[in-house]
Design a protein around this nucleic acid. Structure first.
Length: 461
DNA sequence: TTGGGG
């Protein structure tokens, strides 16, 4: 196996020439167009795979497999389109695919800003990296070339959350809002693009509400109000998890607040909630803030939130069902996320929601032995779920007095989107409008004892 | 050593 001679140290190959240098150690500059997910290998190291291109090989690019002894030493590419300088990487072939292998013992890397950068100082270097004056001309050359090149996101088919459906190999352009360790070594991402994920059918049986009520969120312990308050009030916050929890992904390295494009991900429904699934072969890359797709998402969201009457689910357009009517018709709707994040404990709202479940499950138990109504509804909109209680005179107004059990069953079926009595079909609850109030039950712990109650709302027969 | 483009 040949290595570069001393006087070849400054020699940087074009990718097309590196591809022809199998089993040799070469020096390269490239534009990073995609990264995998950082992973722990089966050996002792971590790996992060980059895909790079240059003018000699603008498509499809070659993979650079970078190994390092810990996650922190891996190249953390800040943005698709950034430039990587690689010294003494070994060119190898597997099948018909040519790779560059970064060996921690003798290879080195440096990362530079891409087309929008003007500095020649790398933002990250590996321990063996030495800067040289000649580097600048390669960086300047690549920057000049990338300006004429279409950004990667322009050509990739990317879904928005309002278009997701169950299946595999989707690309999603979104903003990472939050990353948290939900269990020891298990990380969950919270992503958003300003649109609403489509409502899904509820497959659980209503009777299961007694033993296994529908969860309000996918994470075992709900996010704190401080975290929720950093989330936008409009648009679905999608939870994303790795397909295999034991997959040793370095998800904690991802940065909240950045727009990214995920590639080759799946979407599944858990308990009627959409969930993004990261597979071992899923990719992601941070997008520059001036990426066209990012700007489009932000513009659409800004338009949406500034319209007074637009805080309703996209799929309830142009108007929710006419199953309910509310007082305070002049009050604009808010989202459940608005309600969860409202800065005061006691407040009144109007919103458009679906009723996923009732507890008790059968109308014959909606009233206590003393005759007073007392039931709990599980509500959702594209932004959140919450439990809302229906009590006493608010329930009398809601149900229009004390209808017969048969009538009550009909009302409940309409509310829950049950097609016919006794059918084993999934429920598809309609969007309804309702008034909600938040209140507390313990004066010494007002936030900890906050609850929600439906009022000023009636079912229309 | 590890991973390997699905």
């Amino acid at each position: 196996m040949s290595t570069l001679k001393r006087d070849d140290d400054y020699k940087f190959l074009r990718i097309v020439d590196a591809i022809a240098s199998i089993n040799q150690k070469v020096n390269l500059f490239g534009v990073v167009i995609e990264t995998g997910l950082p992973k722990q290998t089966k050996g002792t190291d971590c790996i992060w795979c980059l895909k790079i291109v240059d003018e000699s090989h603008p498509s499809p690019g070659i993979f650079v497999n970078v190994f390092a002894e810990n996650f922190e030493k891996l190249p953390r590419v800040e943005s698709a389109g950034d430039i990587v300088q690689l010294s003494l990487v070994l060119m190898k072939i597997h099948g018909s695919e040519v790779y560059a292998i970064f060996n921690k013992k003798y290879s080195s890397f440096a990362l530079y800003e891409g087309r929008d950068g003007s500095r020649f100082v790398p933002y990250q270097v590996s321990s063996k990296f030495h800067a040289r004056e000649q580097d600048k001309k390669f960086i300047a050359g690549l920057r000049k070339w990338t300006i004429s090149r279409q950004p990667e996101t322009a050509s990739s088919d990317s879904l928005s959350l309002k278009e997701i459906n169950e299946g595999h190999r989707f690309n999603l352009t979104c903003k990472v809002l939050h990353i948290c360790e939900v269990k020891e070594g298990e990380w969950m991402l919270f992503v958003w693009d300003g649109t609403d994920a489509p409502p899904v059918n509820v497959h659980t049986k209503l009777e299961e509400e007694v033993e296994n009520p529908l969860p309000l969120q996918l994470e075992a312990s709900p996010l704190s109000r401080d975290v929720l308050r950093t989330f936008p009030a409009v648009g679905t916050v999608l939870r994303m998890t790795p397909e295999q929890c034991n997959e040793k992904l370095g998800l904690h390295l991802l940065k909240a607040g950045r727009w990214v494009q995920f590639r080759n991900i799946s979407f599944k429904v858990h308990f009627g909630l959409w969930c993004g699934i990261l597979q071992p072969f899923s990719k992601f890359c941070y997008l520059p803030n001036n990426d066209n797709l990012v700007l489009q998402c932000q513009r659409a969201y800004n338009e949406r939130v500034k319209r007074k009457w637009d805080r309703v689910p996209l799929s309830s357009f142009p108007w929710p069902s006419h199953i309910t009517d509310t007082d305070y018709q002049e009050v604009p709707f808010v989202t459940l996320m608005d309600i969860l994040c409202y800065p005061e404990v006691t407040a009144k709202f109007r919103c458009v929601v679906r009723v996923l479940a009732t507890f008790p499950t059968h109308p014959s138990n909606f009233r206590a032995p003393c005759g007073t109504y007392r039931l709990r509804l599980t509500l959702e909109d594209p932004t959140a779920r919450l439990h809302a209680f229906l009590y006493a005179k608010d329930a009398v107004k809601f149900f229009g007095g004390y209808p017969s059990i048969d009538t009550m069953i009909k009302l409940q079926n309409a509310l829950l989107g049950v097609e016919e009595k006794g059918a084993e079909k999934p429920r598809n609850p309609p969007w309804i409008q309702c008034c909600l109030k938040s209140y507390y039950v313990d004066k010494t712990n007002i936030w900890g004892s906050r609850k929600y109650r439906i009022f000023g709302t009636q079912l229309i027969n």
